[in-house]
Amino acid sequence: MDIMSAFIRRPATASVLSLIGVLLFYFIFGGVDLEKLGGAASWLNYAARIGIVAIPVGLLMISGEIDISIGAMIPAGAMATAIISGYYGLPIIFGILGALGIGVIVGLINGVLAVRTTVPTLIITLGTLIAMQGIVLAGSVILTGNASVPLSAPDWAKTLFGQLIFGGSHQVVIIWWLAFTLLGWFILHQSRFGNWIFAMGGDKVSARNAGIPVDRFTILLFVLTATSASFVGMCHAILFNSAQVSGGMNDIFNIIASVVVGGVLLSGGFGSVPGIFIGTITFAIVNKGIDFTDIDRNWSSLIIGVMLLAAVLMNNRFRNMALNYVPRKKDKGGSAK
């Protein structure tokens, strides 16, 4: 009983149930070979791509803000790396620093605008999203005359960011994803800064009055989201030896969907890193796992939509249960309401 109610009060519960639900669905209706799916790299690689960004985006959403410019930052990071170290042939370290630097700059712009104005961050980051799409496209065409730029990275960079591991087709970014998740978990759930993030998402004014450096933290979180996205782009450019201009719209929705499936409240103040982690896995399995089933790939959007709704409804329900949760009944009669 107690274990059950403790389970239900966790923000990650709905994502665990979603994951089980999706696996059951694919197993029963898609005839999926679970062993084959478990050993497959495609969904794990994809989970790592969106998961690295989903962790900081989740923290940002818990703090009550949102960042959709991440969609443009993945190709921006890839392009920066490829242009600097591929087209201009500078050492790869400049490409890496360039990619991360672009993330820091865009994150700073988003963050400073967010704390200096009252414009909702959805709108602010919509602006930087579109602006960055323009910069990436125009920049690569003007500088290189092409929307696709080749790159060849030295071994050490390949080993760190763009290698296949386990002798198969798993990408090294999976390890980065695990590291990001561990770090995010520590920050949000173990350090005192996590408490600040929850407080900011609950009520910014009260958080500020309690002495929390709300503005600096908001800016920092925006820098983390944008930089994590350009980091993913950089890794991909090194892995695939090239970078292409793309809009990155799919990434935006997929990352935010993973975070929401993971139990983070869109309006802030509630969520967990284990939830985001499992939400990302769930999302990746729905998206890539369908290839391992007999189900026609064209149905995948429908399945994603239904799963998203089911997860959000469950999240709502469980959050209410957590709110109304009263511990064990008191022995004294009459105190129960």
């Binding site: 600040w196 929850f198 609950g202 309690a210 002495g211 929390i212 103040g269 959050r319």
Partner: peptide, 15 residues
């Protein structure tokens, strides 16, 4: 003011 925080966490916000 933090409805979704636990009693212990909200009690010590900032400290």
């Amino acid at each position: 003011t933090f409805p979704l925080m636990t009693i212990g966490r909200s009690f010590f916000v900032g400290v």
